[in-house]
Design a protein around this nucleic acid. Structure first.
Lengths: 184, 184
DNA sequence: GAGGAAGCGGACAGAAGCTGTCCATTTATA
DNA sequence: TATAAATGGACAGCTTCTGTCCGCTTCCTC
């Protein structure tokens, strides 16, 4: 017997809800919250992902797949700076949307996700080094440092209590960072 | 009868512990954790700050006092850019140390803290506009936007799971941001 | 150094929220 | 329509937090 249609539908709903929930709450989001967000019962979420790691692996894999696509496009872009800045922007916005993840990719996901991540890192390194090779991107920063900068626009506020303004805030940070990174 | 010596000692310990705890855990840190950090019983913390808002107000006021000092120094600095960049750096590092606060200053503290914050904001605006007036800081950003940038180095990680490296990470972001902000 | 008041610590009850299970009910397929 | 798969959500057990209370300790005064 094939997979039932409603089961497939719910699986998609749960994954989408998990992505949203992880993005807003973090990796320690409760199963109940995911179920609520998905509009299904907790039992359904537990049946689909008996282990928390399986759920996180699915979420992370989903994100990594999207980003790998973007990285390939960036590497195929004729202009090295344009490729770099578009990938940088994508990474930054994605990081901002998933502020809850912050560096805990290693603990979750297992070897399959690790492999996916390694692939994306490799692509990203190539994009950065190509832009540096063409003299468009400053060379005084290691590619890892450049990559880490993508986390900067994830800012949610400041000690002075200015309202966060996530809509335009990220873009301002991105603009200034890119201006600080380009060489011409 | 004057305040007992041990009471004074404990008050200082609790405030210091609360600052550390809020910085690492966030505004919703539990009283027990603060007490543990301070090395006192929970009762002592509750006696000192029966309302959570009182505790937060004390913490925020402490931070604001420090920063106001720095802002005064920045405004007295002969070189407008130097003044700006040193204040910017202080604000950024302080924000990074207090990532847990993120924009929730308004809900806490009451009018006294609000007044302190208003004063600091005013000083900061002056520092920024002075540097812009001297043509050292790019003029295409409103002072609020510039201020918001101080939150950027608070980055704790990125979607790619690179280890956070808070020690040098903040400095790299700061360098690139300042390079993207200066006009000469 | 003795007495009394102020302060202290931490046990404890009650509330909240999370995990993971179980089964009566619903739904899709043949 | 019959049947098996899938569902939802109640529920027990656990953890963690809040806020109080009271026996004990520490400090100050005389």
């Amino acid at each position: 017997m094939p997979v039932r249609a409603d089961a497939q539908r719910n699986a998609a709903r749960v994954l989408a809800a998990a992505r949203r929930a992880v993005a807003s709450t973090g990796l320690d989001v409760s199963y109940h919250e995911i179920a609520r967000e998905a509009g299904v019962g907790v039992g359904t979420v537990y049946r689909r992902y008996p282990e928390r790691d399986q759920l996180m692996a699915a979420v992370l894999s989903d994100i990594l797949t999207e980003l790998t696509d973007t990285a390939h496009q960036a590497l195929n872009c004729d202009d090295a700076w344009e490729g770099f800045s578009s990938l940088f922007t994508s990474l930054a916005l994605r990081t901002a949307q998933n502020a809850g993840l912050s560096g805990s990719l290693d603990q979750h996901g297992g070897p399959a996700v690790a492999q996916q991540r390694h692939e994306l890192l490799d692509l990203t390194r190539k994009v950065i080094e190509r832009a540096q090779g063409q003299g468009r991107l400053r060379r005084d920063l290691a590619w890892q440092s450049v990559l880490r900068l993508t986390g900067a626009p994830a800012v949610q506020g400041c000690v002075l209590g200015l309202e966060p303004d996530p809509a335009h805030g990220h873009l301002v940070v991105l603009t200034v960072l890119l201006d600080g990174l380009r060489t011409d």
